[in-house]
Simulated assay, not measured.
Amino acid sequence: MSNHLLVLQSDFGLVDGAVSAMIGVALQEARDLDIHHLTHDITPYNIFEASYRLFQTIEYWPSGTTFVSVVDPGVGSKRKSVVALTQTGQYIVTPDNGTLSYIKKHVGIKAVREISEVENRRKNTELSYTFHGRDVYAYTGAKLASGHISFDEVGPELSVDHIVELPVVETKVKDGAVMGAIDILDVRFGSLWTSITREEFYSLKPEFGQRFEVTIFNNDMLVYQNQVTYGKSFADVRIGQPLIYINSLYRVGLAINQGSFAKAYNVGVGSNWRIDIHRLEN
């Protein structure tokens, strides 16, 4: 059941009226909606980042919350518009373009329905092809969050198995080493968040204060190699020193105390950015 909470995410930024238009459309549908923002600073067109930010956030919201995520480089094409119902009871209104990848893998999706644009699209917008965030997603999200439509009334059910998924780098653990990808940045502080889970890292039997050899590649190009201390928090190393830590999503992070690791070494994110962590033998 919906709960009147509507959370918006996009790559629109706040420099023009796009996000405000989405809010207005939602409030036209239901003035008593409680509207919040996940972020509107997703890197333009970066579907993976949109997927990750949803995964980072949704478990902290009540069951019944409706999320609208619009990172839609294929707007106006034949890509489907959908609503997913997660295993934890939230709704995600989004293009079926890979945005649901992390949710499907790490949270679970009970069901997916295609948005019927005959019923669930703002009137007189049929010839507007480039702002589905306003005309389809915010509108449908508001109808769902307000209880004006049920999940079943969104449109026809689709197979969860057939939604679009982005390729994910599988973490490897072997012989005193763990290897994964740099998934995303802790943007404001420049820390690297990797695909390596706490459990995978713990297979190396780490102890606080222990040093590990960290190697970062962009495709086959070596970008960084150094011995890095494993710490509980950033203050476990001197200012300016690197640190391995477990982040708030229980994944391995790489940071510089009071500095930006990403800027210091020009490190990016995505499946072509690989990280290897090797236990050093005493």
Rank of each mutant, 00 (worst) to 15 (best):
L204N: 08
G141I: 08
G141D: 07
D183N: 09
Y230T: 05
Q241Y: 10
I115F: 10
N247V: 00
T197M: 02
I163W: 00
D183S: 06
E165S: 11
A142V: 04
V173Q: 03
S128H: 11
F212K: 10
I149N: 02
T125W: 04
A181K: 02
V160Y: 07
L249K: 00
Y230Q: 03
I246G: 00
R122C: 12
G240P: 13
L204F: 09
L249R: 00
I196S: 01
W193L: 07
V228Y: 04
V169I: 08
Q241V: 05
Q225S: 14
S248Y: 01
R211W: 02
S248N: 14
K205A: 15
E170L: 10
V214Q: 04
V118T: 10
L249T: 01
E213W: 07
M221D: 15
K172M: 10
R121V: 04
E119N: 15
V223W: 02
Q227K: 15
L127Q: 09
F234K: 07
I216Q: 01
H132A: 09
V237P: 01
G155L: 09
T125H: 04
E200R: 03
H148S: 10
A145I: 04
F131R: 02
L166M: 13
K205I: 13
N247G: 05
G240S: 11
S191L: 12
V160S: 03
V164Q: 11
N120V: 02
Y129H: 15
E157P: 12
S203P: 07
G180I: 06
N226E: 14
G176W: 12
E114N: 13
L144S: 10
I246L: 12
N124I: 05
K232H: 12
S203T: 15
A181T: 10
P242I: 03
S146C: 08
A181G: 09
S248W: 00
R134G: 01
S128C: 09
A145V: 07
I196R: 02
I184C: 00
H148M: 12
V223D: 05
S146M: 07
D175A: 13
V173L: 03
R188D: 15
R134I: 09
K232P: 01
R134M: 08
V228H: 03
Y137T: 10
I149L: 06
E119T: 14
F189H: 09
E119H: 15
R122Q: 15
K143N: 08
R121M: 13
N218E: 15
Y230R: 07
N120Y: 08
T125I: 09
S191K: 09
N124C: 06
K205F: 13
E117P: 08
V169G: 01
T171F: 02
F151L: 10
E207Y: 14
V187K: 13
Q225D: 09
N120Q: 13
V160A: 08
S128K: 13
T125E: 02
Y139P: 01
Q225F: 06
E117N: 14
S233N: 14
R198D: 00
F151T: 12
L185Y: 06
A142G: 08
R134C: 08
T171C: 09
V237H: 06
E199I: 00
S150F: 11
V187R: 11
G231K: 03
Y224W: 14
E157N: 05
